[in-house]
Design a protein around this nucleic acid. Sequence first.
DNA 1: CGAGGTGTTGACTGATGTCAATGATGGTGG
DNA 2: CCACCATCATTGACATCAGTCAACACCTCG
Lengths: 231, 231
Amino acid sequence: MQFDEKTGDVYLDVFKEAPVRALKPGETLIYAGDDATQVFNIVSGCLMVSRLGKDGRRQVMSFLFKDNFVGLTATDSYFFTVQAITPSSIAWRSREHLEGYLARDPSAERTFREMVFRVLENSLDLVYSLGQRTAVERLAVFILYLRQQYRIANGTESGPDTVDLPMSRQDIADFLGLKKETVSRSFTALDEKGLIKRPDAHSVDILDVEALRELAGITDFSSPFRLAAPR
Amino acid sequence: MQFDEKTGDVYLDVFKEAPVRALKPGETLIYAGDDATQVFNIVSGCLMVSRLGKDGRRQVMSFLFKDNFVGLTATDSYFFTVQAITPSSIAWRSREHLEGYLARDPSAERTFREMVFRVLENSLDLVYSLGQRTAVERLAVFILYLRQQYRIANGTESGPDTVDLPMSRQDIADFLGLKKETVSRSFTALDEKGLIKRPDAHSVDILDVEALRELAGITDFSSPFRLAAPR
DNA sequence: CGAGGTGTTGACTGATGTCAATGATGGTGG
DNA sequence: CCACCATCATTGACATCAGTCAACACCTCG
């Protein structure tokens, strides 16, 4: 395995020579309920992890980008759905292959565990957003989150502050626990406050990162998702 | 390590001979921001994991019971606070001790990873609740969740359906992303619908489990936290 | 060029939050 | 053991934020 100091991200060599599968927008990679026999690593594109209630309510759990990992569960079957948003290519291995690899290489096992911790911490960040933040605050956090994802994926630390929004307003709404109209209105609100500009519906120019951070209640500069730790 | 078929829970032998620390109600075990040098396993009592925003908003991430594990992070410091709700006793080990143990025993490593997955899945359940469910629904899920915790902790499958609520209304509110008044009103609503009875503020008699499950939108009988997996 | 999907905006509704008063509970010291 | 006080829970009246329903605009792709 490797640890990339620049991005803070962790890769597993298991996917080095792995077969790659292409997905069209909207295509499903993992169906909730299927046997969890494969694991995946995103090579390119943007995917969406979601969970559907029986009455049709949907919660988007996360968006996946380059080098993100999906597919493992504590049980035998997936309990979430993964779909492509943009055309994507995904490296895959059988679950057994990964398990064998991890069993053989103890340091890989440790690295892998850290990847899982990262996912857990992201999910805890989402819990904080959904439980405590208002609509506009959630959107501010979301925009900063996407910004960070792209910077990690592209390996850039600077550059013009334009963020791509490949997903629909409905997808964003289901991620932030809001309705799509509220997401629209929140974009407008950020726009009117002068924090962002919207060239079109699927991209955002960040005009005032600091004000966005302030709104989001994020203190730590380098890792946008760590909150204050008062004592 | 051991796997207990009855409860589906996983224990680590690391804590078998570990020193135990006693905590009074309200006492803090882990301060957010501290170096993450120790790991813990609950022997008895009820604890609370929470995260505080700099403006004072608090999100309770989980409640911990017998045999639950806390203390590991992907980073060097804790980013959450853990406090006792009831008098508790906690077994502890140094982080190095656990790491060494896991490195020596590959099957323990795997078991440990599964424990982490369990925590992740619980956190994803909470995300669904906060993002998609109404106040009353969240409370219904919460009551069922506590019921399951006690059944696991006590190893019982049946018995009278009374659930203990050691935490305050404020704690419940901060867990469910609501205000304490709304939690009170939701209790009253469940009471008036005849689904529960409240002998006192800190215990609940479940009168109609099925109706609670219906409200919570939970289909799977055995594992109350798995949602429908429509396709 | 037209049609369907997607996004924005407006008017109104409803659920949850806020503020405040009252009622219950539990711990402490007389 | 009881009385008191402090804390916590409940309830009510009202405010506010997000949801609903509906119209319209825009873009994309046949």
